[in-house]
Amino acid sequence: MKLQRNGRSKALAIGAVALVSALSLTACGSDDNTSSNGATGGGTTAAAAKIACGKGGQLLGAGSTAQGNAIDVWKTAYGAACSGTTITYGGGGSGAGVQQFNQGKVAFAGSDSALKPAEVEASKAVCTGGQGVNLPMVGGLISIVYNIDGVDKLTLDATTIAKIFDSQITKWNDPAIAALNPGVTLPDADIQHVHRSDDSGTTDNLTKYLAKASNGAWTYPASKTWAAKGGQSANGSAGVSAQVKSVKNSISYVELSFAQTNKLKSAAISTGASKPVEATAANAATTFAKAKIAGTGSDLALSLDYATKDEGAYPIVLVTYEIVCDKGNKAESLDTLKSFLTYAISADGQKAIGDGGYVPLPKELSSKVQGVVAALA
């Protein structure tokens, strides 16, 4: 597994991530292993985790719903080990998180898309003497989830997904879908496709995949904002999941953990490999194996191959970044920010999300992130 940065190869395998729209984390010394959404902390307790607590106080973050459950897992161990600290993470989507960060309202933002040049420039107004940088903390895959009576296995490819979400394919028994699913009885039913209503890094990564792999069927630019025709919309990953669960003959896109939590079926993806690729963390890790660091200096933004045809490589992937100031962080929250992020990227922090069904970042990449976190000022 290789990563390139400044001409040098680096090993990389990044794991899957989970979601929640918002959560509040209070480090109060509790030994309760239950997260705010009912998930457990993957068995990681204060006794198992080695956490160097900060000076305490309040730390605010916001953004990606894709990383909410990962923070929720981390909160159990961090809260049990540390006291006097209140960490509040509000979801709202990647776009909202970046906006709040660049307005100086939060110490860190979660985003499933790296900062754009204009956003980096805007960050300089709040990062005195520095700028916002992208630190990969968790990685995942986007499941194409569906709710079709009598259909337990479904295969789609980028072209059919693009046409479904653009209202060009409107029936489940359309010949293009049937050709990908020999032997499967598909109903003569209208397709109910659901997309995110909020600006979403999940949408951005899905549309990057469609733009790269659909052979021109997706005619819109990759974006956090949904642009295609028709369909229903829902807010956040939780809203999209609930919509698919309740609406027959529906289809949408959510991160793997929400598919699992809501017991939604996920389509296999035909990529051009010898057989369709199932939506599993292990198959996403195969894609992440060839990711490259595209950022420079303290910025560790990654470049992903959405059009991969490698055997067993799931193509619809995302990375969630913590966006922080490399310099110019607020003095009152800097110590706690570094403490929390140091735990999150540590072996214990990564094992905690691994125990919860995700794949931890490899040591070489996590070491790079640790180095940047330690140098935050």
Rank of each mutant, 00 (worst) to 15 (best):
Y314L: 09
D299K: 00
V324D: 02
A347R: 08
K330A: 14
E311G: 08
L318W: 05
L361I: 12
D305E: 14
G357A: 08
K338L: 07
L337I: 11
A307H: 02
Y321N: 14
L304E: 01
L361S: 12
G312M: 08
G356R: 00
S339I: 06
K338R: 14
S333T: 15
L302Y: 03
V319L: 03
D310A: 15
L302E: 11
K330L: 05
D335G: 12
L300D: 00
L318G: 11
S346P: 06
L318N: 14
I316N: 14
L337P: 12
E332S: 14
E311I: 05
D299M: 02
D348Y: 07
D348M: 07
L341F: 08
D348S: 13
T342F: 01
Y321A: 08
T308L: 04
E311N: 13
T308S: 15
D299T: 02
I345N: 09
V317A: 10
N329E: 11
T342A: 15
D299A: 03
S298Q: 14
I353H: 04
G357T: 12
V317K: 00
A331S: 12
T308R: 13
E322W: 01
L341E: 11
V359E: 03
E311T: 14
Y343I: 09
K330V: 12
E322P: 01
A307Y: 00
V319E: 02
Y343N: 08
L334P: 06
A301W: 02
I316R: 01
E332N: 12
P315G: 11
T308V: 11
G356H: 03
A307V: 04
T342K: 12
I323H: 01
G312P: 08
A331T: 13
E322N: 13
V359H: 05
I345P: 04
Q350W: 05
G328N: 06
G354A: 15
Q350G: 09
I345R: 04
L337R: 03
G356P: 00
D335K: 03
S298M: 06
K327Y: 04
E322H: 14
L300K: 10
Q350H: 10
P315F: 07
G354E: 14
Q350E: 12
E311L: 06
D326H: 08
G354M: 02
K309T: 15
T336N: 13
N329S: 13
A344E: 10
S339T: 06
Y321H: 12
A301Q: 14
E322S: 13
